[in-house]
């Protein structure tokens, strides 16, 4: 690689070379790009299966304790959930735009869009924090920790176990996503991306859309349907 860079006579030329950022075991940049994208898609499949287990648990316990689920879901704050849904969908939109601007060599625009995405993610977590503290205050907690008194149906703790597990694991994904977005934001600042090499931006974008997608299922199931 370094020999090639010298042969091309400087950093700028390197970035424009079709071999830029190609690891030694790939024959060309396209193969590497395809491989990376395929890897990310496969990873997203595993994520869906991870959440799939929880969705199964939700379906099973919902059919088992239907009245309890209906009663418990009234204790979730639809307004806050709704705001978070809008916030996350917006962040997905800005993420998609960021990928596009990275492809078009618009570095400043990319930075701005990634920063907005980050801000949305942070806002999502702040809203989530208020929701969680409200639940904890009311004793609406999983299983054995459930202490809220005024429940007519049995086993609302199961609903809150699933609520906290699903939103909690989703929240961890949001935090990881923020880290990844910050990482590509910093790399973007260092001029690492161009129309020839933007794979990390696109791949983080794919991940972020999945995080958004999971929430799009979580919100109606937990907040609206119950």
């Amino acid at each position: 690689m370094s020999a090639k860079a010298e042969a091309l006579g400087g950093a700028e030329e390197t970035k424009l070379s079709p071999q830029f950022h190609v690891a030694h075991h790939f024959d060309k940049a396209d193969t590497q790009f395809d491989a990376g994208r395929m890897g990310v898609w496969l990873f997203l499949v595993t994520e869906i299966l991870l959440f799939g287990g929880l969705f199964c648990a939700f379906a099973i316990f919902r059919s088992k304790y239907f009245p309890s689920f209906v009663e418990a879901h009234h204790h979730l704050d639809r307004v806050m959930g709704g705001i978070n849904t809008i916030v996350l969908i917006s962040s997905s939109f800005t993420m998609a735009l960021a990928v596009r601007s990275a492809q078009k060599n618009e570095k400043k625009k990319t930075t701005l869009l990634l920063a907005i995405t980050l801000a949305c993610a942070a806002m999502f977590l702040v809203v989530k924090y208020f929701e969680y503290s409200h639940k904890i205050h009311d004793g609406l907690l999983p299983g054995g920790n459930f202490t809220a008194a005024d429940f007519a149906s049995g086993h609302p703790g199961i609903f809150f176990a699933i609520y906290f597990m699903m939103t909690g694991i989703h929240g961890v994904h949001v935090v990881i996503g923020m880290g990844l977005i910050l990482w590509i934001l910093l790399r973007n600042q260092k001029n690492e991306f161009s129309s020839r090499y933007y794979a990390p931006v696109e791949n983080v974008g794919l991940y972020w859309h999945l995080v958004d997608l999971v929430w799009i299922y979580l919100f109606p199931l937990l907040y609206l349907v119950g």
């Binding site: 648990a57 099973i60 316990f61 088992k64 304790y65 999983p142 299983g143 054995g144 920790n145 459930f146 049995g154 086993h155 703790g157 199961i158 176990a161 699933i162 906290f164 597990m165």
Partner: peptide
């Protein structure tokens, strides 16, 4: 944390 999903005394399975 005794979340109860698998614990029969808390309604789990």
């Amino acid at each position: 944390f005794h979340i109860g999903i698998f614990d029969p005394t808390l309604g789990g399975d």
